[in-house]
Design a protein around this nucleic acid. Structure first.
Lengths: 333, 333
DNA sequence: CTGTTAGCGCTTTCAG
DNA sequence: CTGAAAGCGCTAACAG
């Protein structure tokens, strides 16, 4: 069933029907109603490919994230979807699994007009931004969230990572911790770097020497990270806290402590970025730094849709910073 | 940049270039190579809308799931994406948030040829399947996973829910529990019904009377569920175990026990369907029934792609059943 | 307010 | 092996 046939059933021309379906002001309310009614009855909707082709624009966006089993990213995507739904957008989803090459390949796939815009959170490996610059060159609107790229002028939605990490570190210091290990999820990503800076600043301000032996630069390989942390904890016997800069590293910290027979929080306290606040509930020793993921998704989608719909306006200096919060159990540790 | 311009740059006709890009056998290897090389260099890819319009088929699928913050669904989607990536498919994602109306609206949105096929897990509320039948009528290939619809003949990928629930109940019985509450996440969904049957069968086979006062039919409203479970636990003082039939209900069970000051697992043991095996690690009192989510995604995608690519073959009697597993901590409870 | 017509960018007969 | 031309289904400029 196509528009032409559908129009015939109404004894109208295709153009009139098309205009009616698109709620054009040059169609009488009466015919509009007639068209809309039959369309609903016959469940007719115009072919989106033809429509997109003709209009040269398109209500599909891509969301490119490292990993959707991370509760934070999952919730962000729900935030994006809720706005998309409302505005009639469709979402294509792609995972980089923190691989730079996969990120490059995915963006290449998206550079041919398949999508009207892109919402993007960088892979932990990404260290070169030419593939992002290519998006700008091709005039494809995009918005960064969480793992943003500092070097590129673009709309960005984040939390204040430095402050959050500072607070978390302070929280540990106040509880008497002095030898706090920091697990850095990426040497390149601004997000992780800022978290590290917050950690270092808090130590320095409290006159505690920063010991680089306690800073672990992790990779995207889980097994490697487990080995590295095991090594750290067995060589640095006096570590009294772990600060994990990502959800995955929080999980790993648990596993390693457990396998080494280290008691949390008696021997080592654990704090980490994670939106799986359940974790904090399941185990009182764990304190989560939680980001407002749903709102981040909302904001990112809102900006992207604006920049798709108003291409003449430049949104590339938009920076939205929301606040994260410390989720801890009542005074148990 | 379109095909015509690109062809001009090569001194070839559009048709030749098109055929070369699509690896047609009637093009010489030499020109193919020449075309492919320049295409890569100029990062040229044909407009997917024009291509889909002309071909009348399309390498985009939709994934419709209740909720992506559920670790199980997130992992299934990663399983789907890994196959999609490999086969050059794109994934549109939609969430029903367990709302029947949203499910209907979403499928309606997809019935106009936007996608080549659909992978679907039903909302907990869904009780009427006309919207699914509409897909069949329109010849849109689709595959159910996990929350399948028994009444409709279609390709399905699930786990053996009855057996898994039976084993879980047996596990509790072996540990001395006699008053096991069962939290049913949906009165309609086959998945939950089968879990309930497994639970009932295990009790019956062990000569334990099934007390309907211990079976709680939950809704999609978290707050209501918390209240209902609180009520159950305060009126049925002898409950010694909770069996939660979904991840969300497992989480709620924790929260309610905690707020009532009930010690898990001393007073009440907890077992539940959940793919967040982390939970089992964080708290030894929790035993997870974990489904092979990634593989379920793989299987569902594989079947869907087959039925898109070979429309003459009928896959609607395909049923793949994988095994779930009990994730428990070493003898701690 | 409605109809006619051209053309979006691609693929695919058909012709050579 | 390559090119010319038609047409997928829709929308928008133009005409009335």
């Amino acid at each position: 069933m196509n528009l032409k046939e559908f129009a015939k059933a109404l004894n109208l021309s295709a153009s009139t029907v098309s205009r009616a379906l698109n709620d054009s002001h040059e169609i009488s309310t009466k015919t509009k109603l007639r068209v809309l009614e039959l369309a609903k009855e016959m469940n007719f909707e115009p072919n989106p490919f033809a429509s997109n082709l003709r209009r040269q624009k398109n209500k599909t966006i891509a969301v490119v994230v490292p990993d959707i089993t991370n509760h934070f990213f999952a919730k962000v995507i729900e935030g994006i979807e809720s706005i998309a739904q409302e505005k009639g957008y469709h979402i294509l989803i792609y995972f980089t699994l923190d691989s730079y090459l996969k990120e490059v390949a995915t963006l290449r796939l998206l550079s041919n007009g398949r999508v009207g815009g892109i919402i993007l959170s960088l892979s932990a490996e990404t260290n070169n931004y030419d593939h992002i610059r290519e998006l700008k060159k091709r005039n494809i609107p995009f918005v960064f969230f969480d793992r943003v790229c500092e070097e590129i002028e673009a709309a960005k939605v984040t939390t204040d990572n430095k402050t959050a990490a500072h607070q978390a570190t302070k929280y540990l210091l106040e509880r008497g911790c002095r030898r706090i290990a920091f697990l850095n999820f990426s040497e390149f990503t601004a997000t992780s770097i800022k978290r590290k800076i917050g950690y270092i600043d808090a130590l320095t301000q409290n006159n505690i020497e920063v010991d680089t032996a306690l800073i672990l630069n992790c990779s995207t390989n889980k097994k490697e990270n487990i080995e590295a942390l095991t090594h750290l904890l067995t060589t640095q016997k006096d570590v009294d806290a772990i600060f994990a800069s990502s959800e995955n590293l929080s999980i790993i910290s648990y596993q390693v402590c457990e396998s080494l027979g280290i008691n949390i929080p008696q021997q080592i306290k654990l704090i980490g970025f994670s939106n799986m606040t359940l974790a904090a509930h399941l185990n009182p020793s764990f304190t989560c730094i939680t980001q407002p993921a749903f709102e981040i998704g909302n904001e990112a989608a809102t900006i992207l849709f604006k920049s798709i719909e108003k291409p003449h306006i430049d949104y590339s200096d938009t920076l939205i910073q929301l606040n994260s919060s410390l989720v801890k159990r009542n005074s148990t540790n």
